[in-house]
Structures are given as C-alpha cells and as structure tokens.
Design a protein around this nucleic acid. Structure first.
Lengths: 174, 174
DNA sequence: CCAATAGATGATACACTATAACATGACAAC
DNA sequence: GTTGTCATGTTATAGTGTATCATCTATTGG
C-alpha cells in the first residue's frame, strides 16, 4: 500500500514544491506545527524553541536541507550556531517522526504526515533536489521474505528513489 | 522477486560472513575477480591495478568499508594514499556494478553477483555492521505506482534495511 | 617514429558532515 | 535549597568527499 502525498492546490501561493504539487503552503506549515505541538503535549515531549524553529524552517523551505544550511538559518534568527545545536534538534525531531533524514543527500526534510505511524519512501530529483514523500511497507514484501529466510530481523528500512521530478522532466525535454 | 545471496558453505574456512552464511571465501574472491576481469575485457573497461586492488580488498574483507579504511589498506600495499585515489576507484567500480555504496553507512561493499544487472537491497546489522545483499525491484511495486502517479521518473533506487543479523540476534537473546 | 589526444593517477588543498567532551542553564522533585 | 535531569552553549576535532592542477601512460593518427 502506498499513499502519494498531495495537499490542496492553491493558485494564490506559488510557494515551494510539496511533493511535486502546488499547495497552500502557509496553511501547510502552520497546520503541521499545530499537529506537532499537539502530539508533543500528548506524549510529554518537549518541543523547545530550537526544536520548534528547526521544524518550522524545514516545513517552510519544503525541501531537503543539510544540517549546516539549517544552522545558517538558525543563526539568522538568533539561535546558537554551532553544529551540535542543529544536530540535537534534528535528532529529537527525527526520533519522533517529525522530520526524516535523506541518506542519499545527508539532509533532512519535514515529514508531511507526522501524525500517522509510517515507514516512508522518498523520491529525490537529482537536478533540483526536491523531495517527495510516499508511504510504503517494504518489509512486508520481497525484502521481508528475504530477511525471514536469512534470519535477519528488520527494524527500520530506508527507501529512496532518485530520478527526475515532473518539472525537471519537462525542462529536460525542451 | 527476490533472491537471497548465499554461496556454497565450506567447513574448512571459518572466514568472514558472506551475507550471513559461511562459505569458501578464497574461491569466492578469486571467482568474483575473474568475473570482473572477463566483463571488463568484454566491455572495454579498464580494470587497472588500483581498481582491481580496491575490488580485491572489498571482496576479501567481505563487509562494508569506508573510503578511508580502504585507503589505509591501499597504502599498505604500496598504492597512493590520498582520498581521490580511493574515491576514483570506487566511482569506477560502482558505476559498473562491481561494488555498491551503502548510504546508511557511508561505506562500500563488493557486489556478490556482479554479472547480472540488478537493483540491490541490503540488510545491515546495526551491531556488527555486516551487510547482506538481496535482489529486489522496488520500482515495480508500490513505489513505482506512486512515482507514476506523481510523474516522477525513477532512475535508481536505494533499499537498505537496518536490524539484527542472525548472529547478533542470538547474542542478544543470551 | 613522433605528435596529439584521452584516460588514469599523484598530490595539495579544501569543503562539507558529524560527534566528543565539557560547561552552563532551566526546571521539577524531594 | 539541594539534587537530578534534560536541554543548550561552546570548543575542538573526527570523518567523509571534491576541486584543481600536474604528471604519466597508452593509444591512435600522421
């Protein structure tokens, strides 16, 4: 089962790409922050100012950012600017499913449906680095069978597809 | 379709783990080198001394090695010891399917069936870092459907499962 | 045979990514 | 108010990867 992530398109905000579809980005950011706050309150997690700001940055940018790019933005907003500041916030956020690490890019993206438990799959454009998140369950299929046969216990899976996003396909064709 | 990698077990060589099964490691190394040589000859690829040595190192070690670990071994055998030496050889080998990069570990493993075209999936033990290679075709399933729906052209996929290998499961249980 | 070319290697320097270690601060529990 | 815990600040350093330019070597064409 896979669920392609796509929110309501909106003509009044050209915005940054979510998945590869346009959408009401301002609402998308504030909604996601609210969801995160609610879940932290529920579960006794501490969404401190730095952590909240990092999540906000990633939601706002809506693409994969390296830790040092995040760090630059944190500095601009008056937060600490040494690497551990960013890495610690990112650790918290990814441990709790608010952001995902993109191994292929050594970078991070905000999760676009942080409320559900999920094992994400990503589509990464090799030209513009845009990242779209999809849902998948690789451990249930062929890989799961191989692991079972081998006696390997899967705890987590990384699925990342690299290729061309719709916009870059068009550009390449022209 | 998935094919778990397992070669002939042999009691006379305790050896390093291949996948997670014991096997005749000496034969496994020389066989793989022969296959690589044959394919390079066929396709006009140049399996130069450094490239061959890097492949041999990865086959011999039979686990994921970082570029700098490879570099140390190259130095011991009298080759150049600056990072580009290792990275260039690894680029050549991975472009041609003789080794794979493990994104999760920033490391490289020799391919265990370099003769077939394939899109590999890996099982990585988080305790001992052993890596087993399986075959999968993620782009044909759910992910492929999501990509198609999104208009994303997949060129390459990375599938890496992290968990516990059989040996470490046993250790953890005791 | 020699020159021209292209691919591979050597070597220096640097950029980017990540963590160890230790000090400080904020806040709750006892 | 002391203790414990968790988060943050700060310095330093470790680990991973490339850009650049010079040199070498093997063709290939003259």
């Amino acid at each position: 089962m896979i669920h392609y992530n796509m929110t309501t398109p909106s003509p009044d905000d050209p915005g940054a790409p979510l998945g590869f579809a346009k959408h009401d980005h301002h609402a998308c950011v504030t909604d996601a922050l609210s969801v995160a706050e609610a879940r932290c309150a529920e579960e006794g997690l501490r969404l401190t100012p730095v952590r909240r700001k990092v999540l906000e940055i990633l939601l706002r940018e809506h693409r994969a950012l390296g830790a040092y790019a995040i760090l630059d933005l944190l500095r601009e907003e008056g937060f600490g600017s040494q690497p551990p500041v960013a890495y610690r916030a990112l650790d918290f956020l990814s441990e709790n499913g608010f952001v995902h690490r993109i191994e292929r890019l050594n970078a991070f993206v905000a999760c676009t449906h942080a409320d559900e438990a999920h094992s994400p799959a990503f589509m990464i454009c090799r030209l513009c680095d845009t990242v779209a998140e999809a849902q998948s369950a690789p451990a249930r299929g062929a890989l799961g069978a191989a692991a079972k046969a081998a006696g390997f216990q899967i705890e987590k899976t990384v699925v990342e597809a690299e290729g061309l996003c719709p916009a870059c396909v068009d550009k390449a064709a022209s």
